[in-house]
Design a binder for these strands. Sequence first.
DNA 1: TCAAAAGTGTTCACCGTACACCCATGT
DNA 2: ACATGGGTGTACGGTGAACACTTTTGA
Lengths: 224, 224
Amino acid sequence: MVLQVRSARLHVMLWRRAAEPFAGAWALPGGPLLADETLGASVARQLASKVEVRQLAHLEQLETRSDPSRDPRGRTVATAYLGLIPSDLDPVLPEDTTWHPVDALPVTAFDHGSVVGSALARLRAKLSYTNVGFALAPPTFTIAELREVYVAALGYEVTATNLQRVLLRRGVLAATGEHTASGRAGGRPAMLYRFASPTLEVTDPFAVLRPPTERPGRAGGSVS
Amino acid sequence: MVLQVRSARLHVMLWRRAAEPFAGAWALPGGPLLADETLGASVARQLASKVEVRQLAHLEQLETRSDPSRDPRGRTVATAYLGLIPSDLDPVLPEDTTWHPVDALPVTAFDHGSVVGSALARLRAKLSYTNVGFALAPPTFTIAELREVYVAALGYEVTATNLQRVLLRRGVLAATGEHTASGRAGGRPAMLYRFASPTLEVTDPFAVLRPPTERPGRAGGSVS
DNA sequence: TCAAAAGTGTTCACCGTACACCCATGT
DNA sequence: ACATGGGTGTACGGTGAACACTTTTGA
C-alpha cells in the first residue's frame, strides 16, 4: 500500500476493481508472487504498473493475512507492505487508480480496509520514535511545511515550535542554510531544513528500562 | 518460535533436524500451512506436537521471509511467530527438542538464526513500552523474581527499585496483598505482585509527538 | 546486635509541552 | 507603524535513573 500526503491530508492509493469478487470496490495494488521472486521484489513489480517505484522513499513489510474467508474464491495468503511517497511528487496514475483520504475510505475489497488501518497505526507510531518523516516530506522544507505533513499523517495538531525542537535535538533535522522568500503578506523568511538521513533510523529506542549507563570506571579506564 | 526464561536465562525451543537439508542443525518448529487453516491455527497445530499450546501466554506474528535461497530445495515463504511461556512452567518436550540460551545458539538451519535475532529485538522493545512481561513471569512473583525475568530477557542489568517504580506507576503491576516467607538467611518478607492484565497492552504509547492535551474549556464544558 | 533482603525517599538530569516574547519582512 | 509569519527563551510537570536510607526478618 502506498501512502502520500496530498493537500495536507494523508491519502492511500487504491484501484477500482472491475471484475468479481468485489467488482466496483476499491482495492490495494497487489498480485501473486512469482516463482523466484522475493516478496519485496514482487511488491516493486506490482507497484511498477501504478507508479514509478523510484518515487518510493521508504518500503517496509507489514503483516501477513491468512484468514480463509478473506477472499470468497478461496484461501489466499497476502503479505501487506507499506510504501511512502514524498509530498512534493505527483505520480501519473492509471485510469482506474486514484488517491483516497485515509480518513474517508470508500467501500474496499477483501480485508483491505482493515489493512489500511493497521498501516496507519504503524506509521503514526514510527513518526514518534524514528525519522520516517523523511519519506513523507520533500527534500527540503520549512518547519511550517513539515508541520503540515506531520499533522496530516498523525491526524492531530502539532505545534511547529515543539516539532522543530524535538527533531533538532534528536539530530533528525539539519539546517540547509537557505531561506525562503517572504510570502505576499510579509513575515519573516523561513529557514529551510532537510532530514539528516535518507534511510530509516530509530531515534528514540527505549523510553524506559534502558541499559545502565556506563560508569566512568575508576581503574583501568581509557585515558582521554 | 517459543521463548522462555529458564534458570535466569532466556531460551528458545529448537529441534534437531535428522534429514537433509541442514541435517544435524537446529531448527525452529514449523511446517506447511494446510488448505483451510489460518496462519495462527497452523502455528498452534505445529507447536502442539512440541508443547501444550495452552502454556503459551502470548503469541504474535513476526515477519515473513521469502528469500528464494533460504531453503536449498527451492523457494519457500515462511511466516515467523513469537510465542512466550511463563517461567514457572516446564513443558515436556520430545526427544529431538530442547531449550537453547538465545545468547549461545548452536548451528541453526535455514535463516532461523537471524529470525531468532529479530524476535529478540522485538521482545526487548516491547518489554519497554508494553506489559508483555506477563507472558514471561509466573502468575504471582516478588519484585526480585520479576527482575530476574527482565534481566534475562533484556540481557542487561535492571534494578529492582526502578523496575518496581516504573511498572507500578504505569499500573502494569498490582499488589496481591500476600507476602512470602523470609529466606533461610533472614531478610524482610517480599510482597507478591501480579500483572494487572493477562493480555497485551501498550502502556507507553507515544514518547513524543503526543496529541495535544485537552484544555479544560471555558464554555460549554461539562459540570463536574 | 548483626547480616540479609525488601522496600521507600530523595535527588538529579533530561525531555516534551506550553506559552510568552522577540525577529525579519512586506505594505 | 503595523500586520504577518518565523524563531527563540523560559518555565513547568513528569519520568527514569541512581543511590542512600529505613524496614523487617533470621541467626
